[in-house]
Each structure stands twice: as C-alpha cells, then as structure tokens.
C-alpha cells in the first residue's frame, strides 16, 4: 500500500494537503490547518483545524495509528507495530488512497500477502474517523455541520432552491 500512496500523487486527487513529511507530533511541526476540497463540486472546501484537534486529543495515535511515534491506540495493531518509531509516511493520504476507484487501482488489487488489503479510501478514512469520534465527544456529525453545500450540491440533493415543489407545498401545511 505504500506504493499506492505514491501513485496517488500523480492521480486525479485534488486534495491539497500541506506538505506533510515525517514529523513527530511532539515536535509540533505539523500543519495548523488543512484544506480539504475533494468534494468541491458539491460542497465548499472544509478547513480542517488540525491544531485544535491536536490540542483536543490526548495522543496523535488516536488518528494516526502507529505512524507518529506516540504509541499504538489499538492493541490489535501492536501485534506488529510497536508504535515507538516515527514513520516516513504520516499523512492520511499516504496510505488511504484518494482515488481508490481509478482503473489502475481497481484492476491491480492489493496482493493477498499484503496484510493491509482493506484500507478505507481517503474520503472514507476521514469520515469514519471524524464521525466516529464526533459521536463520542458530541462534535458535529451532520453533513452540513462541516460542509457548506454549493449550488451544484443543492441540485444534486434536490434541496434548497432545487427542492421538489410538492415537498415545499406539503411542508407548508
């Protein structure tokens, strides 16, 4: 999966992550904000306040698994990863493919001997991680709590000014 991460850089991904290199959390050398705009056709870009989340969490491993050199949150991972070493790849997109459905990714599935053959794609990794934790800590969980819908988004969801007329009518009752 490591090479998959590299492929991505040339892929379709329009993810603008600030350059994230092998930097430990405690070195405090991490991006303060990350702009995520892969869904920009439906939603406006989300500015992820990384610094705030660093303050809010006890340990970088809660999101970054074993890659930040801060231990391992999930003991299952600890069977292989001791978590005390910083990895070269820390950013989400380095392992979680931003474009899992591109033809080359689909037709060259991870070989059977690779243990991590079932990683969520980048979009899912974000959402699963964010929403999962937000539910526990009462953070925002609704779509539009984080993402402001664009006009194209309204059109796609038949919402806002594109809402079905009968619906507007019946809701008026």
């Amino acid at each position: 999966m490591v090479h998959a991460g590299k492929q991505l850089m040339t892929g379709l991904g329009v993810i603008l992550l600030s350059a994230v290199l092998a930097v430990g959390c405690y070195a405090m050398d991490y991006p303060e904000e990350i702009e995520i705009d892969s869904l920009v056709n439906l939603y406006e870009a989300v500015v992820f306040d990384h610094a705030m989340h660093v303050d809010a969490t006890e340990n970088c491993s809660e999101c970054h698994h074993h890659t930040t050199g801060t231990g391992v949150a999930n003991e299952y991972c600890a069977k292989c990863h001791n978590g005390n070493e910083e990895m070269d790849l820390v950013a989400c997109v380095d392992c979680h493919s931003a474009d899992p459905l591109s033809p080359e990714n689909l037709h060259n599935p991870t070989p059977d001997f690779v243990y991590h053959n079932d990683q969520p794609n980048l979009k899912a990794a974000y959402h699963l991680n964010c929403i999962g934790c937000h539910k526990e800590v009462d953070g925002p969980t609704g779509c539009e709590d984080c993402h402001a819908k664009t006009e194209a988004g309204d059109k796609f969801y038949h919402s806002g000014e594109f809402a079905p007329k009968e619906s507007a009518h019946s809701s008026g009752h």
Partner: peptide, 17 residues
C-alpha cells in the same frame, strides 16, 4: 441522490437531504 442523477430518474418527492 447519486443513483437518481446517474440513472436520470424522476425528481424525488422529498429532497435527498
């Protein structure tokens, strides 16, 4: 919503959100 768009299905009776 994606299915509706892809398959050119008629307008839903309620918004998809």
């Amino acid at each position: 919503a994606a299915c509706n768009e892809e398959q050119h299905l008629p307008e839903p009776s309620k918004p998809f959100d």
